[in-house]
Design a protein around this nucleic acid. Structure first.
Lengths: 208, 208
DNA sequence: CCCGATTTAGCATCGCTGTGCTAAATCAAG
DNA sequence: CTTGATTTAGCACAGCGATGCTAAATCGGG
């Protein structure tokens, strides 16, 4: 009987409007009115799918987490299931490709990085965001840790390195690069980012 | 004839109230009302020293830049003027101490780091903050670059490293560490931060 | 004492926010 | 076509923001 609409699709559409607004005006500018306008809806319509501003914000952060997780996990599967002895796959290149997924190297990842930065900084003073923000933090450490674990297993990681420390160091480097690439794009061109990541991986590998 | 008051001191006092409010509630909570209350003044009094909210914000960012610059520059002078041949000074330890000044290892630096993070992320969408934010960015690169330059001159830097790349890599690592230490203090304890920095410096030094 | 520039305080306005609530529009089923 | 649940739209309100403007309080000099 009712007008038929896919509610989940609507929520996703609104969520993408949220991302665009945050990218343009920051989380501070992500008001219900701005979001509704960006989504091409009336404010009342948006409120039909989200009980309030907090709900919408938390939902958007969860959606970001899902998006990032899905994108990264694809690469993780591909890397971790690869045969270390297969000469046709360049293990080092695969690792570099995987880790580059955490960096804003194209428009999609740039948008995700901006939204991520806005959310995690806001989470410091907004308890309702802390949970998902921490999930993003932990998820990244988990992935980086697995990559280093695997490198050690196949004998490509320098022996005198502590994986716990190196995992945190590499993660912090990626976070810092992502942040600076987004905040000062003029000062940090893409090829410099690539060279930094490559140089860091070089410093981790077992001299052969 | 007038009531005598040191205006500059007043402005500084208000600025410190701004820092405290940003630390507690984020830049979003740094409204004239909140700041005036934190400073123990009436809103009208604050407005006597700052023409508006924008002025106050920009002034506070400039004050942060001055504070950080002054603190770092002291260490820089001490390090750069030290005699490389003097066996009583541990060059490596001095460098580590200098770079640690960029990290939130005590309450003062923690507050500065929080305020820094709030400002630089906000500067992305607020043109009036871009200038000082960029000065902070460039200042850090300059200091780190000088440290690496000096290390190379005294033969303590691995020969096959590019200073421009390593300067940016170390800066990004410090930024990432600072950010994560402030946003996820539970996950990144102080001794881990020290071990990461120490490990990074180890990876840069010329094997002797 | 008292004058007056400086400093402090506060009122009034306007714009924007989130949100409770109501009402209209839509469209598949009967 | 009629029906009615779903969806869309929007009004009204209270709260908080910045800010133009006015008025009171302060206190060193004459």
């Amino acid at each position: 009987m009712p007008k038929v609409v896919n509610p989940e699709a609507r929520r996703l559409a609104v969520t993408e409007a949220v991302f665009r607004v945050i990218c343009r005006d920051g989380l501070e500018g992500a008001t219900l009115r701005n979001i509704a306008e960006e989504a091409g809806l009336a404010i009342g319509s948006v409120r039909h799918y989200f009980t309030g501003h907090t709900d919408l914000t938390v939902f958007a952060l969860a959606a970001l987490r899902d998006r990032v997780t899905a994108r990264i996990l694809g690469h993780v599967e591909r890397l971790l299931s690869a045969d270390p002895a297969d000469p046709t796959v360049d293990q080092r290149a695969e690792v570099e490709k995987l880790l580059a997924e955490f960096l804003p190297l194209d428009e999609q990842r740039r948008q995700e990085t901006v939204v991520w930065l806005e959310f995690v900084t806001a989470a410091r003073t907004r308890p309702e965001l802390q949970g998902h923000a921490r999930e993003l933090y932990d998820g990244m450490r988990m992935v980086v840790g697995r990559v280093l674990d695997r490198a050690r297993r196949i004998g490509r990681l320098c022996d005198d390195l502590d994986i716990a420390v190196e995992s945190e160091r590499l993660s912090a480097l990626l976070d810092g690069l992502a942040m600076n690439a987004v905040l000062q794009p003029d000062r940090l061109p893409l090829d410099m980012i690539h060279r930094i990541l490559a140089g860091h991986l070089d410093s981790l590998k077992e001299p052969s």
